[in-house]
């Protein structure tokens, strides 16, 4: 079986010189897939994603993108290699307009990025209507769309989303999940950390339940939704 497109393989590590938060944690996503990482608070979900993006020290294990070892690369070098990342908080420039935020997303682009911007506007039509409005004035769901759109401006080969539905209403959350599925259909694999485990597992091709920085359960979203132990421990029965 071939290796996944992006894999954080047996990662152990933590922030700075602090204690290890991840313990032999493995997460991966393949082309055409949505992979989700769920688990209780403090399980190391966001930490696992940041380790994959290079924002914390991986003391052992490796991160490989399309077969290439990128463990030693800085986050910005990983962006150059095709990783798009949407942080959980402070993921837009609030004083800039929507369009300026998207232009900032094209920071590394040296070619004409107008076509990509049109694709982002097609994917998130509300952003086209609000293109000259300051991003800080938008609702939570719209801001998340700006953040995802900004990440898409780099033309990523894989997209990492850290709790994209944090702090939004259930209706907006459903809309955001629909948009994420649409992004996935454009061919970009998506690795996503989510608090809303049930909804996330419903759309997941591949899912990881982390507990205390280690893999507790792995499978397809449907498998984990049907797993009695996962249901009892993480989905409220």
């Amino acid at each position: 079986m071939s290796e996944p497109f992006l894999i954080g393989d047996n990662m152990t590590g933590g922030y700075g010189r602090g204690p290890d938060i991840l313990h032999n944690c493995t997460i991966s996503v393949n082309k055409g897939e949505i992979a989700v990482i769920v688990g209780p608070n403090g399980a190391g979900k966001s930490t696992a994603m940041k380790a994959t993006f290079g924002m914390l020290n991986v003391r052992s294990g490796a991160v490989r993108l399309d077969g290439e070892d990128i463990t030693k690369l800085s986050p910005q070098e990983r962006v150059m290699k095709g990783m798009g990342f949407v942080p959980q908080v402070r993921n837009i420039f609030p004083s800039m307009t929507v369009e300026e935020n998207l232009e900032m997303g094209a920071y590394i682009r040296t070619d004409d990025f107008r076509e990509t911007m049109e694709q982002v506007y097609d994917l998130f039509p509300i952003l086209r209507d609000k293109r000259f409005q300051a991003a800080g004035e938008l609702s939570g769901g719209q801001r998340q769309q700006v953040a995802v759109g900004r990440a898409l401006m780099t033309k990523p080969k894989v997209l990492l989303l850290d709790e994209p539905t944090a702090g939004v209403s259930p209706v907006v959350m459903d809309e955001l999940f629909d948009r994420i599925i649409e992004v996935s259909r454009t061919g970009i694999p998506i690795l996503m950390v989510e608090q809303n485990a049930k909804q996330a597992l419903e759309i997941a091709d591949r899912a990881y339940v982390l507990v205390q920085g280690a893999n507790a359960h792995t499978g397809t979203g449907k498998d984990l939704l049907a797993d009695p132990e996962v249901r009892r421990s993480f989905l409220g029965g």
Binding site: K50, F53, G54, M55, S74, P75, Q76, V79, M80, G84, F85, V86, P87, R90, N91, I92, F93, M104, G105, Y107, I108, R150, A151, T154
Partner: peptide, 14 residues
């Protein structure tokens, strides 16, 4: 301190 936002742009954020 490296910020997630700057790093996600591919900017030298270190």
């Amino acid at each position: 301190e490296t910020t997630s936002l700057a790093a996600s742009l591919g900017a030298p954020a270190d």
